[in-house]
Design a protein around this nucleic acid. Structure first.
Length: 853
RNA sequence: GCCCGAGUGGCGGAAUUGGCAGACGCGACGGUCUCAAAAACCGUUGAGGCAACUCGUGCGGGUUCGAGCCCCGCCUCGGGCACCA
């Protein structure tokens, strides 16, 4: 160690002092206000905004740390960055807390928001706080109502009475997406089916586009999220086929034909029965007054009792009753008995199914149970059955003891003119039968989706009121635009159980059309409507004329990097895509998809790999790391432990390790700063130690930059660690007066600026105090690196014989393949003696493989 | 049942997409400093072997000069959808 160093004392790293100092300075300078500089390329970085149900937890900390590192680095790379934050503030937890504590939901919500915002500032996140809003602000939800009305005008909103999921825990209805594993997504209660008049958004109008545009997101969204959405939308191609009702003596059914949806029209000849769901009004008509009615009613009552959880799982036994009626198979004129079965869904397809036991496991099980015909109509050509049945004229049925339905692939038998054709999904037989049915006017090609319309009305107080009025004369009438917002009253006695529906000052009004007394709709909108467009409002948060201006969203949309949890893979991310397409069709935005790149961060679990929860008592609050180590250590640890999309288990040793590194790098930067001077590094003038450090700075600088580009913060950090290690060696090995001033500065500058997006306070302090720079490191340029300087003059390469490493040789980095080959052969000459060299493969800078026998 | 994703040291995880497996870190071990400990710093650390070497990326095959990476057949774990006709 040199004398200069002995005399130089590195200041202690006091995270607490540094962090509070810079947070205050940044706030005073409004450092993170969005630039709005159109001369720069834009980057919109967004983290899913939180629900303010308490203080932020580790999951939030991870989510926002990832986004903040991205946003800060983008700024340093020369982008005009939009990086906002806000709160998804409507919802049941606030209302429940208000009821429990006999207060107002807004009070509880704002308390939590204040606390969470404090924590955000304490973490040093670079949000433009001027753009912050809460969805429960009337200035925000007014525009949610405005969008609702636009959708109403477009015919995308309707009211319907049908059985819906009623959550007894939350005392409100739920959308299909909000019933997860048969349970309420929020409280875990098991929803009941209730027929209620409810409001819907017609998301099914966009089913095809929502599916198709997933292709635009290929490689940009995680594969599993795209797969989940495709799964949820659930497109099936098939045909509708009309079956005529037969044997209707004594009744006059509403319709004389019943249409089924099937994905397998090729199995039409194998229909041996016909199925209706228990809720089917037609089924009720068919059995009315007959000997079958009692059994039918019993089945219907039993089916209604089955909960959504029990409905899950294909293991459940199927139940059915015969109606005494028949339909005629359009393809061969055979009558098929109509049964009512509890495995048939009323709200999928046409609510009627053709029973083909030989091709469908469920139909097979049902046929076996009730002794119904099984007609083999599809098999492989090498099956003896094929020759046996291919010339049948009269359908041969069987009760042979098959133990399962036949494979769905194969060739058709006893299928009239279609016999011998290849059957199966998307097969020639499917096309041929659809064509034939079309010619006969008996069927047509069609597509079905699993996706249902989005039920958005909630019978709860703490939400955005649906801006509609019900008038006995005029029906449902929209609230005029100039009367928006319909303001949520803030003086309900929630503790006493008062609801909007009972609160006359809210619901009493007059009809905007006829002027007579009328009643406001007292349902509020699903909170997911609030979060479906908030990213657009951030582009123009103070607009009083519109939800947002076209100009603002054209500037910022789409969100370039969206970061959030996988739990929204279907819910929020599907709804937001839907809103974006609707608003596009309203001419308000130009983009088709809201989120260009999606990163779903993994969960933070406890040390044993269990999810953290209050009830388990294993929650590690962010403050438990910030207090002893500081926000920078916390941020570094979160990003270094694992790649962002992976789950990780909280590890105190790893946090201590991150803190050790931050202190080590602190010391190294200070040491380098002694005698350092900014300037161009003259690589030719460096000594061997200097050359090695310069090479590492450039090689690892390039790697770190590339790793930021692919959001691999763990390896980006490891690259900075390698520079720090190399710099540490340099300051240890080379006396201060012999060090290169420009190199010392460059190495220190690289460590500080590349760590700045991750440890902003640490970097800011070193930037000013050690490197003596003006202005914030946030505005510093991301360092540039030199490919040529990243390469060593000489490289050691492996010499393989038939793929096994047999020696090593050091060659000049720019040596030709021929030179390398000669050197390699010389290095393993003894082992090549007496062998014939068949081939030599030279991989530049890596290895030589000599194939010799 | 259908659809995704993942299996690499004691641990978290790397590997520029077919080119020296295990970067970086944690832990462990050894050393320096200290009366001692902590901290810090310097080493060692996939397994087996004294060694030269051998074996090693869930399992079994294959392609290739060369496979963690590509192909075929499995196994295990995680996740999503699900009586969806």
């Amino acid at each position: 160690m040199s004398d200069a160093e002995k005399n130089f004392e590195v200041p202690a790293y006091d995270a607490e002092a540094i962090e509070t100092k810079w947070q205050a300075a940044w706030e005073a300078d409004e450092l993170y206000k969005t630039e709005e500089d159109p001369s720069k390329p834009k980057k919109y970085v967004l983290e899913m905004f939180p629900y303010p149900s308490g203080d932020l937890h580790m999951g939030h900390a991870r989510n926002y740390t990832i986004g903040d590192a991205m946003a800060r680095q983008a700024r340093m790379r020369g982008f005009d960055v939009l990086h906002p934050m806000g709160y998804d503030a409507f919802g049941l937890p606030a209302e429940n807390a208000a009821i429990k504590h006999n207060t107002q939901a807004s009070v509880w919500t704002h308390q939590n928001i204040d606390q969470a915002t404090k924590t955000m500032r304490r973490m040093g996140f670079s949000y433009d706080y001027d753009r912050m809003f809460n969805t429960c602000d009337p200035e925000y939800y007014k525009w949610g109502q405005w969008i609702f009305l636009k959708m109403w005008e477009k015919g995308l909103v309707y009211r319907d009475t049908s059985p819906v999921n009623w959550c007894p825990g939350c005392q409100t209805v739920l959308a299909n997406e909000q019933v997860v594993d048969g349970k309420c997504w929020r409280c875990g209660s098991i929803p009941e089916k209730r027929p209620l008049s409810q409001w819907y958004f017609k998301i099914t109008d966009y089913a095809q586009e929502l599916l198709d545009d997933l292709k635009l997101l290929e490689g940009k969204w995680p594969e599993r999220v795209r797969a989940m959405q495709a799964n949820w939308i659930g497109r099936s191609e098939g045909a509708e086929i009309d079956f005529a009702l037969a044997d209707v003596d004594g009744i006059t059914p509403t319709d004389t034909k019943i249409t089924v949806f099937t994905t397998r029209p090729d199995t039409l000849f194998g229909v041996s029965f016909f199925l209706l769901p228990p809720e089917s009004p037609l089924a009720a008509e068919l059995v009315a007054g007959t000997e079958h009615e009692a059994a039918f009613l019993e089945l219907k009552a039993a089916a209604e009792k089955v909960s959504s959880v029990d409905r899950q799982g294909s293991e459940r036994e199927k139940h059915g009753v015969f109606t005494g009626r028949y339909v005629i198979n359009p393809v061969n004129g055979r009558p098929a008995p109509i049964w009512v079965a509890d495995y048939v869904l009323m709200d999928y397809g046409t609510g009627a199914v053709m029973g083909v036991p030989c091709g469908d496991q469920r139909d097979f099980d049902f046929a076996k149970k009730y002794g119904l015909e099984i007609a083999p109509i599809i098999c492989e050509k090498d099956d003896p059955l094929y020759d046996d049945l291919k010339d049948e004229r009269e359908l041969r049925v069987t009760s042979v003891d098959w133990d399962h339905a036949m494979e769905a692939e194969g060739y058709l038998v006893q299928s009239g003119r279609f016999t011998g054709m290849k059957g199966g999904k998307h097969s020639e037989a499917v096309d041929a039968i659809i064509e034939w049915l079309g010619e006969q006017g008996l069927g047509r090609k069609t597509v079905q989706f699993r996706l249902r319309d989005w039920l958005i009305s909630r019978q709860r107080y703490w939400g955005n009121p649906i801006p509609m009025i019900h008038c006995d004369c005029c029906g449902d009438v929209p609230v005029p635009y100039d009367q928006l917002p319909v303001t949520l009253p803030d003086n309900l006695d929630l503790g006493a159980g008062e609801t909007l529906a009972e609160y006359a000052p809210f619901y009493e009004t007059t009809c905007p059309k006829c002027g007579k007394p009328a009643k406001r709709i007292t349902d509020t909108m699903d909170t997911f409507t609030c979060s479906s467009w908030y990213y657009l409002r951030y582009c123009d948060p103070h607009n009083e004329e519109l939800p947002f201006s076209k100009e603002a969203v054209d500037r910022w949309m789409p969100v370039d990097n969206y970061i959030g949890g996988i739990e929204h893979a279907i819910l929020h991310l599907l709804y937001s895509r839907f809103f974006t397409k609707v608003l596009r069709d309203l001419g308000m935005i130009d983009c088709d998809e809201p989120f260009e790149n999606l990163l779903c961060q993994g969960m933070v679990k406890d040390a044993n790999g269990d999810t953290m929860s209050k009830s388990k008592g294993n929650v590690v609050p962010p403050s438990s790391v910030i207090e002893p180590f500081g926000a920078d250590t916390m941020r570094l640890a979160i990003l270094f432990i694992a790649p962002p999309e992976k789950d990780f288990n909280w590890d105190e040793e790893a946090v201590a390790g991150a803190n050790r590194f931050i202190k080590r790098a602190w010391r190294v930067v200070w040491m380098l700063s002694q005698g350092a001077a900014a300037g161009a590094v003259d690589a030719g003038a460096l000594d061997a130690a200097g050359k090695e450090l310069w090479r590492t700075v450039n090689a690892m600088g390039l790697k770190c930059t590339a790793d930021f580009d692919r959001c691999q913060f763990n390896t980006a950090i490891s690259a900075v660690m390698e520079i720090t290690n190399a710099a540490s060696k340099y300051v240890n090995d080379v006396a201060a007066e012999k060090r290169d001033a420009a190199l010392s500065f460059a190495a220190a500058d690289t460590i500080v600026t590349m760590l700045a997006p991750i440890c902003p306070h640490w970097a800011e302090e070193l930037w000013h105090e050690a490197l003596r720079q003006e202005g914030s490191v946030y505005n510093a340029a991301w360092p540039e690196f030199d490919e040529a300087a990243a390469k060593a003059d000489e490289v050691e390469i492996a010499v393989q014989i038939k793929g096994k490493v047999r020696g090593r040789v050091t060659v000049a980095a720019d040596a030709s393949d021929e030179e390398v080959e000669v050197a390699a052969k010389a290095a393993v000459a003894d082992q090549l003696a007496g062998k014939e060299i068949k081939k030599v493969i030279v991989i530049k800078g890596r290895l030589v493989n000599i194939v010799a026998v």
